[in-house]
Design a protein around this nucleic acid. Structure first.
Length: 405
DNA sequence: AATGATACCAACCGCGTCAGT
DNA sequence: TACTGACGCGGTTGGTATCAT
């Protein structure tokens, strides 16, 4: 017996999601998770059913989605897995990180199916169409996997050896925290779309909508550090690349207020005197200590860039100017060796744009990720509000660069 | 340039499963 | 054990983009 449709309630919206709805859902889930999909739309302020929210999130908004063109390797894996699992798209998708069952199903129906037919292969049986026989064997060599005695599912059947090879690749030395997938957000079409919306929203809210004057070119992953010459970003607050000279020009002398400025100077003095970064920052900045632990945890179990981005974003809320923290609060990225400081804004967006925070660039961030004692950049709640002068032009530059993509 | 055909894919629908009561 | 409700899955639809004529 079937269930009643979940979306028959009067007033619930159906059809394509708007950017505003996306934003509400993403904001809500990032902040609260989704313990119960039925309650999500109500709590997030959406006129959608929970099911619709779940689908939107899992198939489109989830930040760990890879999206983009399916590679040859992935296609081969899909074919192999399909020969073994059939139309169990969710199970197939489980072997393709960043791909959803819906995406794979669509790709199968629109691409692979036709391709196999052109090759004279029945997409259902994976046998040559001309001499198709009752589908007992796959076209690919099979091996039998040892399974527990109580296992009775289809997964206990022989697995195509090619698929198995993909599912269980040879272990390689890790350069990044376990479970972490280097993101490609800065070129991902969906990410660009989301960022465009974010930038547009913020530009509107700031009153700075003139984007014509800008010439900023979105930095490539590898180039982000080039603007911050000699400043390892540690956790990647490499916003220098985004703000260019605006941020380069900022320093504790001109952009920080007391007593924070005094703290910076103290740090500098201690570092200059040869003390280690850990001893300086760890012993003197409770905020660092508090968040360092969280940051380490996040990095160790990194599954979601946005989770971390939001974590960092949370640091900025409640700035003393009484303005929206995410919009205009300042973040100070500190560089342990020389303890140079840079004031910037909106780290969440910065990170998504530059990708530098999570990009295992050669000789830059990657080795640092493996140093759990690295301090987390601290918020700088007392930073000078005048630094907005750097923020809004940068925002316009970003908006324009996104529009050009 | 206009129109129709085709491709693509986000979103929906309905059913199965499972946990809680 | 039966019932209920939430979630997940697979099939399908329909809107939009792209291509061909």
């Amino acid at each position: 017996m079937g269930r009643q449709p979940c979306c028959d309630k009067v007033g619930l919206k159906k059809g394509p999601w708007t950017a505003e709805e996306d934003r509400k859902l993403v904001d809500f889930i990032i902040k609260n998770g989704h313990c119960c999909w039925r309650t999500v739309p109500k709590l997030a302020g959406l006129l959608r059913c929970g099911k619709s929210c779940r689908l939107r999130w899992t198939n489109y908004l989830r930040p760990d989605l890879k999206r983009g063109v399916v590679s040859e390797t992935e296609e081969k894996l899909i074919i192999d897995l399909h020969s073994y699992l059939g139309n169990r798209w969710a199970k197939i998708a489980a072997h393709l990180p960043g791909r959803t069952d819906n995406e794979i199903k669509n790709y199968w129906n629109t691409h692979i199916k036709k391709k196999l037919k052109r090759m004279g292969i029945d997409p259902l049986t994976h046998q040559p169409i001309a001499d198709a026989q009752p589908a007992q064997q796959s076209q690919v060599p099979l091996i039998t996997v040892e399974v527990p005695e109580d296992a009775g599912d289809v997964e206990t059947q022989p697995i195509p050896i090619t698929a198995l090879a993909m599912v269980a690749p040879a272990e390689e030395p890790r350069r990044v925290p376990p479970g972490f997938e280097p993101p490609t957000f800065n070129k991902d079409p969906h990410c660009i779309k989301v960022m465009k919306q974010k930038v547009s929203d913020r530009a509107m809210s700031s009153g700075s909508t003139n984007q014509s004057e800008v010439t900023y070119i979105l930095e490539d992953d590898k180039s982000t550090d080039s603007c911050a010459q000699g400043i390892p970003s540690r956790l990647g607050f490499n916003t220098l690349s985004m703000f260019g000279e605006d941020v380069k020009a900022s320093d504790p002398e001109t952009s920080c207020k007391m007593p924070e400025k005094q703290l910076v100077l103290e740090y500098n003095e201690k570092l200059d005197a040869g003390q280690s970064w850990d001893s300086v920052a760890g012993n003197n900045n409770p905020m660092l200590l508090e968040h360092q632990e969280t940051a380490q945890l996040m990095l160790q179990t990194e599954e979601n860039l946005w989770e971390f981005a939001d974590l960092v974003g949370c640091f900025n809320k409640g700035n003393p100017n009484g303005e929206d923290g995410m919009d205009c609060a300042n973040v100070v990225a500190m560089e342990p060796q020389g303890l140079k400081w840079a004031v910037s804004h909106e780290p969440t967006m910065d990170m998504l744009v530059t990708g530098s925070i999570f990009t295992p660039g050669e000789g830059n961030n990657a080795p640092l990720w493996l140093q759990p004692a690295d301090p987390l950049p601290a918020p700088w709640e007392g930073a000078n509000a005048s630094s907005n002068q750097a923020f809004y032009p940068a925002l316009r530059r970003l908006a324009a660069s996104l529009d050009s993509i």
